[in-house]
Amino acid sequence: MRVTINGDAREVPDGTTVAQAVRILTGVTTGVAVAVNDEVVTRGTWETTPLRDSDRVEVLTAVQGG
């Protein structure tokens, strides 16, 4: 299936979880938050939340600003 991770279209296997999507970008999990289709997915449920076709995944972290 095709999902979008931080704006990039990616082909991932069916059943890919939020946790696996995050690991495509980074091995770090502290200081990171995820939204799927503009809804926050709490860290405790990353492993058990499967993505669906066309999902938009945003993986955010803190950067210099303000």
Partner: peptide, 17 residues
């Protein structure tokens, strides 16, 4: 101290955090 939230950049080294 304030920080902003942005898309994670896998190439970024070091963190303001």
């Amino acid at each position: 101290t304030t920080v902003a939230m942005r898309r994670l950049d896998p190439a970024a080294r070091g963190s303001v955090l």
